[in-house]
């Protein structure tokens, strides 16, 4: 098991290098010299920022050499300085990371806690009213543009009913209220962004856990469990569910790229002070060092999440062997 964990962990490094390389090359095969594109579109950029850019990327040299330079700095978590305000990219990202992690972790939790029961109940009462309603709901959920849903939430629950705050994470008055009240206020601000972020994941995962559960319930060991005289509750929640969870764990890991992608949209819509919005702003301002930094860090988070789900899978399945598993 220890060896397995180490192997999976070491696999993150080449993946990260591969992805940063693709990104780097993509940025460099784009037509035109990045500095001039940037200059043309953003006249605010100072001469020092331009030289900073040249220093980091060494734009006159071949792409591979430039990438090697970038990679060497990357190992010291040095992504250069932002074009916008000259602050180190890494410190900008670090200041935004907690908000993103909070939003992502909450959404992840919500997805799991909502989708799994939906899937289980649909599978157990297959063909019943709940199952049919959920099938239709999930079908619509799949096609629903989540950013539109976010707008509707803002409109109805935010503006019309005034139930939830529609933007930001920590309001100006937060410093004046006590610890618990502040935590409550934070939760209050989380509701809409989490709802919008988790929505697609709930649709996908509830559907997946339904079919996974139906599959497990058709297995012979479930018949054995019933023949033993176990209660139906135990048959479903222990025998069927424990097996159905295995593929679900893998799928949970694979929802992460989608969640992170979503953060670029939803953090922007809800003015959430996280890394996704930083990335979006950086793109809109052609702030390449920040773009590269955000891309690499969010990829790292994704890989870390997939790694953790791999470990959870290995821990949950006694049959796991390293060789037999490929994502």
């Amino acid at each position: 098991m220890g060896k397995y964990i180490l192997k999976r962990l070491l696999l993150i490094i080449p993946m990260l290098i591969g992805i940063s390389f693709i990104l780097f090359v993509v940025m460099h095969i784009a037509p035109g010299d990045p500095t001039s594109v940037k200059y043309g579109l953003n006249p605010d950029i100072s001469e020092s920022a331009r030289s900073n850019f040249n220093k980091i990327y060494g734009l006159d040299r071949p792409v591979l050499v430039q990438y090697a330079t970038w990679l060497r700095r990357f190992f010291f978590l040095d992504f250069g300085d932002s074009f916008m305000d000259g602050r180190p990219v890494i410190s900008k990202i670090m200041s935004r990371l907690p908000a993103t992690l909070l939003l992502q972790a909450s959404s992840f939790l919500v997805i799991f806690c909502v989708a799994l029961p939906i899937g289980i109940i649909s599978a157990v009462r297959r063909g019943g009213l709940f199952d049919r309603t959920m099938t239709v709901a999930v079908f619509i959920g799949y096609a629903l543009p989540a950013f539109w849903l976010a707008l509707l939430l803002i409109f109805f629950l935010g503006f019309k009913l005034q139930l939830f705050p529609v933007s930001g994470m920590v309001p100006w008055y937060a410093v004046y209220i006590g610890g618990f009240a502040r935590a409550g206020d934070l939760l209050w601000h989380l509701v809409l962004p989490v709802f919008a972020t988790a929505f697609g994941g709930v649709a996908a995962l509830s559907r997946y856990s339904r079919s996974s559960m139906i599959e497990a319930m058709g297995q012979n060991y479930v018949l054995t469990a019933r023949a033993k005289g176990l209660s139906e509750r135990r048959v479903i929640l222990v025998h069927a569910l424990r097996n159905a969870l295995l593929p679900i764990i893998t799928i949970m890991g694979l929802t992460l790229p989608g969640l992170i992608s979503g953060s670029f949209i939803f953090e922007t819509i809800f003015a959430w002070p996280g890394m996704g919005r930083l990335g979006y702003e950086a793109i809109m301002n052609y702030d390449y060092p920040v773009v590269m930094g955000v891309a690499v860090i969010s990829t790292f988070l994704t890989l870390l999440g997939i790694f953790l789900s791999d470990i959870a899978y290995a821990a949950a399945d006694p049959r796991i062997r390293y060789e037999t598993r490929r994502t």
Binding site: M15, I19, I22, L23, V26, M27, P257, G258, I260, S261, G262, F264, I265, G279, Y280, I283, V291, V294, A295, S298, T299, T302, L303, I306
Partner: peptide, 10 residues
């Protein structure tokens, strides 16, 4: 493993 939307945006 890459958040595709961000790549597209870039």
């Amino acid at each position: 493993c890459f958040p595709t939307l961000f790549l597209i945006m870039i």
